[in-house]
Design a protein around this nucleic acid. Structure first.
Length: 553
RNA sequence: UGGGUUAUGGUGUAACGGUAGCACUACAGAUUUUGAUUCUGUCAGUCUAGGUUCGAAACCUGGUAACCCAACCA
């Protein structure tokens, strides 16, 4: 009956864990560090973690990994919560690694008491020089064999602020010859006299990622702790701490992070784009951030569908951005009301239409009756799209040309009689005549035209600014190219059209309402719209068979 | 001169030792008052060399390639 849908490898693990009674229910977590904005790669992780819990009747915690006070801010916490909510997910608990600082500190003392941690006096360079390399073992530190008592008192002194940043660290005592570099006596606590966004000045020592993440998972009793591939080497340490501390055995699983063509995904690179003003902000519609995509008009539904379609696996991937665009169009096609807007206007005068006359034509808002209809005013002078007229028509040209006829959408068939040009050769005005009996819905002429074009009445049109976005980079994988990724930025990723015209019904356009500008694409109102000025973003263009035809020629 | 992870059409992902499937892209056609949507069809794949097996994309061995690991970042 129902189609057997294949499981990804994490679902297989979960189903096995549930089937053999290892867990009665699952708990996942989404653990961002609040040091930047979420992007589409995070969306993959969010959809995975929350989706798994939804699918298997479990829960998901939102946990902020805030163990480095110098990089983290409440501003980011707020944006992350907004983005996760917008994507359509609810967390069971809003938690912070910093909630566990007392507990984590106690864990460190436990390790010292077990002879499994020691205070290190050496500085960063000295520690690094004894660490060895992937091909050579490291050497033990001279501080490695301090007594438990000495370690205890030194760690207490660290905690009390008796030392400067960098003077001492606490290290786990594992194996300086381990193949896994993370097992070579990793640092677990460091001194930072810094203000923390939540704990303020209570602490001057902070746990490292490896001494916070797994333990936080364990404290919350997370069953499946899912992260990206680069954390594979950390898993051995993750398990080591849990084993030595004898706490709830959360398990870490890793999947391949998302890459998308024609963009970059690392926080560092995205930050550069913002700071060096290649884009205007984190929510610039060209950015692969959740906030950028939201502003551009991508729907949460389409992003969730995208994350579903790309799948979960362990191999490196570079997803074609056209799949994302497909998902956006697929959703918007269902949602968007159709309206008419002329992006690059040229005037069409219908010489046999009475001057001063206006007709209120009825136009459908979408592909079927459920979308309803609206009134569109028609008059003698119309704006039409410059690209819909061709002085010398190409082969298979269905649009306007001298002597040719087209249907004006929801209105009349019009025949082009002549046109005017300026001294530079640009067409300035087109003249035509309409066929009176060809009114949309009441056409008794029997004339078949191949083309239908959109239009707006000159005297009724609203002026608008339209922003057209293109891919941010000129190459598929900017990070992989020679040299600086910024050398591959597409200089034409934003095209601002100040002088477009839209139909009057758009006067009351609302933010977050998607529109299809017929034959041009999906658009949404931008937040920079003011009472005197409409601003629209192009979310994504429509598929365009004609432009392909042109390319072939 | 170490260790780890991964190799399936252009892209992504299935096939769990038994007919290599699905989606996107590309291409062709039908429908269309959006050259959109919808519908139909086409092209195209198991990294390599051995081995195990009646049978291998899958299991084993070698090779090759890509990515990750030596932050007081996460």
């Amino acid at each position: 009956m129902s189609e057997e849908k294949s499981l990804n490898f994490i679902e297989e693990i979960i189903e096995a864990d549930l089937a053999n009674g290892k867990y009665a229910t699952i708990l996942t977590r989404f653990p961002p560090e609040p040091n930047g904005y979420l992007h589409i790669g995070h969306a993959k992780s969010i959809c995975l973690n929350f989706g798994l819990a939804l699918k298997y009747g479990g829960k998901t915690n939102l946990r902020f990994d805030d163990t480095n006070p110098v990089k983290e801010e409440t501003e980011y916490v707020d944006s992350i919560k907004e983005d996760v909510t917008w994507l359509g997910f609810s967390w069971a608990n809003e938690l912070y690694a910093s909630d566990y600082f007392d507990q984590l500190h106690q864990f460190a003392v436990t390790l010292i008491n077990k002879g499994l941690a020691y205070v290190e006096d050496s500085n960063a360079d000295e520690i690094a020089s004894l660490k060895g390399s992937p091909t050579e073992p490291g050497e033990n530190s001279k501080n490695r064999d301090r007594s438990i008592e000495e370690n205890l008192s030194l760690f207490a002194a660290m905690t009390e602020g008796k030392y400067q940043d960098g003077q001492k660290v606490l290290r786990a005592k594992i194996d300086m010859a381990a193949n896994n570099m993370h097992m070579r006596d990793p640092i677990i606590y460091r001194i930072k006299h810094a203000h923390h966004h939540r704990t303020g000045d209570k602490w001057c020592i902070y746990p490292m990622y490896d001494f916070a993440h797994g333990q936080s998972d364990s404290i919350e009793k997370v069953t499946h702790s899912i992260c990206t591939l680069e954390f594979i080497p950390h898993r051995e340490l993750y398990d080591w701490f849990i084993e030595k501390l004898e706490i709830f055995p959360s398990k870490q699983y890793e999947f391949a992070r998302l890459n998308v063509t024609y963009t970059v995904m690392s926080k560092r690179k995205l930050l550069q784009l913002v700071e060096e003003q290649y884009v205007q902000s984190w929510d610039d519609p060209r950015m692969p951030t959740i906030s950028g995509m939201r502003r551009r008009g991508y729907t949460a539904e389409s992003i969730r569908n995208f994350c579903e379609r790309i799948g979960i696996a362990k191999r490196e991937n570079l997803i074609d951005v056209s799949l994302l665009e497909f998902c956006v169009r697929e959703d918007l096609n269902k949602l968007a009301n159709r309206v008419m807007a002329v992006v690059d206007p040229v005037k069409l005068v219908i010489t046999n239409y009475p001057e001063g006359q206006t007709e209120e034509l009825v136009s459908e808002n979408g592909p079927d009756d459920s979308y309803g209809t609206r009134i569109v005013p028609f008059s003698r002078e119309l704006w039409i799209e410059r690209e819909d007229f061709m002085e010398e028509p190409a082969k298979k040209w269905f649009r306007l040309a001298p002597g040719a006829m087209v249907r004006l959408k929801s209105a009349y068939i019009v025949k082009c009689d002549n046109f005017q040009k300026d001294p530079d050769g640009n067409v300035t005005e087109i003249h035509g005549t309409y066929i009176t009996e060809s009114k949309s819905g009441d056409d008794i002429t029997g004339i078949k035209v191949k083309g239908t074009i959109h239009w707006v009445s000159v005297s009724h049109a609203l002026q608008a600014e339209i922003r057209l976005y293109d891919r941010l980079f000129k190459v598929e994988n900017p990070s992989q190219e020679e040299g600086d990724f910024k050398d591959y930025i597409n200089p034409d990723s934003l095209q601002v059209i100040e002088n477009a015209f839209v139909e009057p019904s758009l006067k009351n356009a609302a933010l977050s309402t998607p529109y299809q500008f017929i034959r041009k694409g999906y658009f949404c109102l931008d937040k920079e719209t003011t009472p005197g000025k409409l601003v629209f973003n192009r979310t994504v263009s429509l598929k365009d068979a004609w432009s392909k035809e042109v390319k072939k020629a």
